[in-house]
Design a protein around this nucleic acid. Structure first.
Length: 288
DNA sequence: CGCGTAACAAGTTCCTTGAC
DNA sequence: GTCAAGGAACTTGTTACGCG
C-alpha cells in the first residue's frame, strides 16, 4: 500500500497523528484490544484506518531496518552531532560523542568536567520514536542499535525518561517547548537541519521560537527547512495532505519514493511552519 | 548486565525592572 | 515608549545508585 492510498482514503490531521502516536506508545503490542483502544484515542478514525496507518508505519520501519533507507551517517564519528548537529550549544562537544567511547570510563567528574550534553536532534528524536514503536518501551538497546545509532542505550534511556516525563506533564500550565513535544515522527517540520532542536538552542525548530518570534528573525524565511535538508519535496509524495504517518517520516533520510510520508504537510492552521508542535499555551502570558 | 529513577549541573529562554 | 541588563525559571543531558 502506499501512502497515497492511505492518504486518499483518509487524511490524518496533525492532532490525529499525534493522538495515534501517543496511543501507540500507551498500548503495547501485546495489549489486549490494542487497536480498539488506540482507535478510541484517535478521534475520527476507524479501527481499520488505524491499522492501515500502522502498517504504513511498520513498513517504514522495515525499510529502515533492511537498509533500504540509508540512515544518516550519524555514528560515523563526528557526523551529525559534530557537524551541523552542534547548532550551538552542542557545539563545543567534541563531536563525537560519547556515543560509546568514553562511556565506560568514568572519569571522575572532577577530572573531566561533566560532559556537556549533546542535544538530540530532531532526527534522532524521530528515530527514537520509531524505535519506540518498534521495540517498545524498555528495549533501549535495540533502539540504540537499530535506530538511534548515534546514541548509547544509556542515552536513549535517559532521553526516554525525559520524554515520558514530558508527556505526563503535558498539561502543565506554561511550559517551554522542547524536542519532546514531537510525539510523532511524522511531524516533519524539521526546520533546523540537524541542529539540536532541543528547544533551547535555536528555537526555530520548536515552538519556542514561535512564541517569542520577536527576538527570532523570521527563521524559516531563511531556508526552507525541510527542502534543503531532506530534499523533502521529493519524498515522492503528494504532499498535499497532512502529514501522514506518524512514523514514516523523512527522518532526514533520503526516503525512498514510496515514503510518501509528507514531511510537512501543508499545515492548514499551522501557525509556524517550522514549529512542530506547540502546546496549547505559548502565547498566554507572553504579552510583551 | 541492563533498566529505571533520582540528583546534579549546564545552558537557554522568559519576565521584570530600571534607565534613557 | 523603547531598549538593555539582571535574575529567575525551565529544559535537557550526564552520572550515580538501586533493583530485577
Amino acid at each position: 500500500m502506499t501512502v497515497e492510498e492511505a492518504d486518499s482514503s483518509s487524511k490524518w490531521s496533525r492532532e490525529q497523528d499525534k493522538a495515534f502516536e501517543n496511543a501507540l506508545a500507551s498500548y503495547p503490542e501485546d495489549f489486549s484490544d490494542r487497536w480498539e483502544k488506540i482507535a478510541a484515542n484517535v478521534p475520527g478514525k476507524t479501527l481499520e484506518e488505524i491499522k492501515e496507518h500502522y502498517e504504513l508505519l511498520e513498513d517504514d520501519v522495515n525499510r529502515i531496518e533492511s537498509g533500504c533507507v540509508p540512515l544518516p551517517p550519524y555514528n560515523s564519528s563526528e557526523s551529525s552531532a559534530g557537524d551541523e548537529g552542534a547548532g550551538k550549544k552542542g557545539s563545543s562537544h567534541s563531536g563525537n560523542c560519547n556515543s560509546e567511547s568514553n562511556h565506560g570510563s568514568k572519569n571522575s567528574r572532577s577530572d573531566q568536567e561533566r560532559r556537556k550534553g549533546i542535544a538530540w536532534t530532531e532526527d534522532e528524536h524521530r528515530l527514537f520514536l520509531l524505535g519506540l514503536d518498534k521495540y517498545g518501551k524498555g528495549d533501549w538497546r535495540s533502539i540504540s542499535r537499530n535506530f538511534v545509532v548515534t546514541r548509547t542505550p544509556t542515552q536513549v534511556a535517559s532521553h526516554a525518561q525525559k520524554y515520558f516525563i514530558r508527556l505526563n506533564s503535558m498539561n502543565k500550565d506554561r511550559r517551554r517547548s522542547s524536542i519532546h513535544d514531537i510525539t510523532s515522527v511524522g511531524n516533519g517540520d524539521v526546520s533546523a537541519p540537524q541542529g539540536p532542536i532541543t528547544g533551547q538552542s535555536n528555537g526555530t525548530a520548536s515552538g519556542g521560537s514561535a512564541a517569542k518570534s520577536t527576538k527570532q528573525p523570521p527563521g524559516h524565511s531563511v531556508a526552507p527547512p525541510c527542502i534543503s535538508v531532506h530534499g523533502v519535496p521529493t519524498m515522492g509524495q503528494p504532499i498535499g495532505g497532512p502529514l501522514i504517518s506518524a512514523v514514516g517520516t523523512p527522518v532526514n533520510l533520503p526516503a525512498p519514493a514510496h515514503m510518501a510520508y509528507g514531511v510537512r504537510a501543508t499545515l492548514p492552521g499551522a501557525v509556524v511552519p517550522g514549529a512542530p508542535v506547540t502546546y496549547p499555551m505559548p502565547h498566554t502570558s507572553a504579552h510583551r
